[in-house]
Design a protein around this nucleic acid. Structure first.
Lengths: 386, 386
DNA sequence: CCCGTACGTGAATCTCATG
DNA sequence: CCATGAGATTCACGTACGG
């Protein structure tokens, strides 16, 4: 199936070389529609781009969300869902065909040393990843964008969907791709940049609005594109985005001295993007700050200590004066005479107090005497520093 | 391709019901090889398990089939290592076939309300995820296991690969799966559990060693299985692991009062696993209890509280801001200016809201202030526990 | 001008038993 | 199959407004 859609094999570097050689005195870059947004379907638009001419393709394709009816928040308000036509596909097969088609074009126009980046969620990323591998790309990393402020799961039916996944792939297994290792290490306080990135979603001033309404439902944060381009392109490189939307890729490319090309079907997105890129100012300080990984102290829930065996389920906890006792359950809740709940809630309830710091209130019995459960938390933090 | 491997459709609950009905006086669980490790190929081993009999399948499938030098065919025979494009595609196809075969068995033995969990890395997880969707499972979440102590990338050629990905899937879109929302929220200090989990890799005392050498190359931490089982199974549920290895799944299942079945080809892993599970200590019944959601609590109609005198007919109820008031009638309905009906319906109508939880909206006036009528329900439940 | 509170909102596959 | 009604359910920010 994959081979049908694979436009060319291009396994040997020689093929790319000969093509470059054939382009006479005009450099391939001169023919590229740099700094423009191509209208229409991205597959057709990419067909106008020469082979082996793009240094990076960044793609944020439709996720094929398949949402049901309206979703209400606990306060009764309605969630503004992504129900746009461009996200609707008849079947997985239709989505796969669409994916393989645009990937085939992306592969054709990408230089042998170029990088492919795609972002998605669990709805589509597995299909996209499979197609990337089948097309012959070589996956370098999957990157997890951990959202610091995701939308909660309002109905309590699943885990909060708090991340999206990016795939970074080189042209093939042998490709000489660009990876600015030092830049990434510097950005991360002299520690190797990990595959999980903590970044806020796009909101506030950065979010494009028209009459107070967001222009695009899924605008990506500039900090995300900033890190991607800094990691895998060089100044002057050409970045193409087949799903340009409101032009985050273009704005960041301009900021970082990279060239850009976009493809976008919807005129109102194209207009907003051109306007935005024209007036692009240096990344505001907030955006840059969020990219430098804060050495934030990880929060350690009591349940994690139970899970990790620092305090076993079944342990009996007591307060300092041994007036109260409580039993630790598997989920980190406490079971005391007449009260169950968190270490804080049970402590408060037993004392008939409005609140209670369970970490210092509850103790574990040792031979040497009582130890507050907070010491277990300290031990955990020591052992699991990132 | 997917349909070929789909053993049965099992879309209608009726199919599962009729099967259960046909099992005469012997319960399906009685026929299961609980607490044992089935030797040999997992696909053949699972064939001996009855339909619709397993509550959770946890799978940690191999993902180095095309990387470890020798390429394995789905039947276990080896293919000469190859590097050109066609054979790379062939290796993906072989891996996909293997994946779809064991998934088909997993789907067959899973109860309609059961859960599937699979863990993998970027080498294989996209192919596995696609196969999961094609088999008809419904993905609930993808979970990122963030490793607090990952192996660094020594050559500085990529981002540190600091996570693995898990997929949690229900049988199909309509399935009534188990999710212990409250237990997860409690485990995470009263915040919704997110899709990114920070856990250390398996090391230290937990890591099984023989003569100082690790027994299994990819032993998973018990904390990971602990969270998975606490989230999506109940005590007494049957968990099957087709790639049992050294038995982390079995050890945690025993600890949490779940039943387990393993499949493992290698005798030395089976031996290590049995020894390990033998010495694992089960938690007592009280410790494996977790926080329950209100949905699982027995329903108490408001009228019953009126009947029992917890809230007298004739009482005046008000909302928190005292903007609305309503009069309690003998049958538990409310009578407010311009609206009569249930506590929920009247609350919604007065606020002009789509819905309203009357239990938390309406309050009774006490000397100390307002108290939500939900506290009366809690008292009633406490007094009438069985 | 500062601080506290209230309100709005983000790629979301978001209830369930009963008739 | 669908309609109905009870009733369960949210986290992190940015912005606006009032004192």
């Amino acid at each position: 199936m994959a081979t049908v859609l694979k436009i060319r094999t291009k396994t040997s570097p020689a093929a790319g070389q000969s093509h470059a050689a054939s382009s006479c005195d005009v450099s391939p870059a001169a023919k590229l529609p740099l700094g423009t947004i191509l209208a229409g379907d991205c597959i057709a638009a990419m067909a106008a781009i020469p082979d082996d001419s793009i240094d990076m393709v960044f793609a944020d394709p439709p996720y094929n969300l398949q949402l049901g009816g309206n979703l209400l928040r606990p306060d009764g308000s309605t969630v503004d869902a992504v129900t746009d036509d461009w996200d609707q596909f008849a079947s997985f097969a239709a989505y796969d065909l669409f994916t393989r088609n645009w990937l085939a074009q992306a592969r054709r126009i990408l230089k042998p040393a170029g990088s492919l980046w795609v972002i998605g969620s669990y709805h589509n990323i597995f299909r996209v990843g499979t197609a990337i591998q089948d097309a012959g790309f070589w996956i370098m990393n999957d990157i997890v964008w951990r959202k610091s402020n995701p939308m909660p799961n309002f109905k309590g039916t699943r885990f909060t969907n708090a991340h999206e996944t990016l795939i970074w792939a080189a042209f093939d297994e042998k490709a000489k791709y660009t990876f600015n290792y030092r830049a990434m290490k510097t950005l991360n306080d002299e520690l190797q940049m990990r595959s999980d990135w903590l970044l806020p979603i796009c909101s506030g001033q950065e979010r494009l609005k028209h009459d107070g309404v967001k222009v695009h439902p899924t605008q990506k944060p500039e900090a995300l594109l900033y890190r991607i381009m800094l990691a895998t392109t060089r100044p002057g490189d050409v970045v193409l985005d087949p799903f340009f939307g409101t032009g985050t890729t273009g704005a960041v490319a301009k900021r970082l001295g990279r060239e850009w090309i976009g493809c976008e079907q919807e005129a109102r997105y194209r207009d907003a993007a051109m306007e935005r890129i024209r007036s692009a100012l240096p990344l505001d300080e907030r955006a840059i700050k969020t990219m430098q990984s804060k050495r934030q102290a990880p929060r350690v829930p009591f349940g994690m200590l139970v899970e990790a065996g620092y305090i076993a389920a079944g342990t009996m906890l007591v307060d300092k004066k041994r007036r109260f006792s409580a039993f630790v359950r598997a989920d980190g809740s406490l079971d005391a005479a007449g009260a169950t709940g968190s270490i804080h809630a049970v402590g408060a309830q037993l004392q008939n107090a409005p609140s209670c710091n369970g970490w210092t209130f509850w103790h574990v019995m040792h031979e040497e005497g009582l130890k507050p459960i907070d010491t277990a938390r300290q031990l955990y933090l020591l052992a699991n520093e990132e």
